[in-house]
Amino acid sequence: MPEKRPAVLDVKDIETVFNTRRGTIHAVNSVSFSLEPGELLGVVGESGSGKSVTMMSLIGLLPTPPARVTGGYVKFDNIDLLKADAQQLRAVRGAKIGFIFQDPMTSLNPVLTIGFQLMEPLRTHMGMKKAAAKKRAVELLDLVGMPDAERRLSDFPHQFSGGMRQRVVIAMALACDPKVLIADEPTTALDVTIQAQILELVKDLRRKLGMAIIWITHDLGVVAGIADRVMVMYGGQIVEQAPVRELFENPQHPYTRALIETVPDIGAERPERLRTVEGQPSILYARPSACSFRTRCAHAFERCGKENPPLLVTDKAHHVACFWDSATGEPRNV
């Protein structure tokens, strides 16, 4: 991995809340991370852990109200995206930061041809003329491995299969050569053999185009295959962050360890029973003043209920937010 290059995206202490009838829900609590050029950052967590909300907060994609980003900054291209006005944001979204959503059917407009939808960002962001945009659209579809690209420009989304639709969405996200691509569970709605095709495609595109990618998923297997670095989220916070091999070989947070253990491994001996994490994530009606995993944690002790553990740097660029030391099995002295 390249060292010491300036980060393309620098996120600091971001906070997002949702105002609901039952009270304010603190979905993202002081999340900071940075993304290096060309890096693929995997973000893992269960539903409700705040992984999608964090990424959508970055570029103002959350409907306000009910959502509100209450603090922090997002440095991208020398501007703070959280303070940017609508016009500045529009120039960034789709052009410099591309977004791929989970469900390819709902992120495409069913009544417009995919040719029109592919050419739209090219014409608005890059000011291309129709003929040039069309040529580029064909190139993009070729790039994502769509057979017979030119003819298919006039087809509508329903004429494509799920995997092909996701390729169209990827082509759209790549249209303006973004510096950062945020992919929110892009393969969850697809079958395994199609997922394998898309993963190969993304690896290949990264080699060719070299953009930085944030890949949100709940599937540890997917992350293991493509990420350089992994961030594990729980209760709207980052609980662990490490380079991919380090994380899988030496998981330190009890939640990460549990996540890795609950996934049955078809390459290994079959255990008599699956390891489980009992209970379920709690909903945060207040800023967490204690560790939000403590109620499900096997190692929780007194301090976990009193303070919220900060993200500590252990070694090898490994960060963990836990008072329990997995190496010694004892509470940490910090």
Partner: peptide, 26 residues
Amino acid sequence: QALLSAVPEPNPARQNTRVHIVLKGD
């Protein structure tokens, strides 16, 4: 064989030793 090889491998250390069969088409 293709279906099993498409299952994401949760162990990065074993990642490189696995044979990947990526099926073409739908």
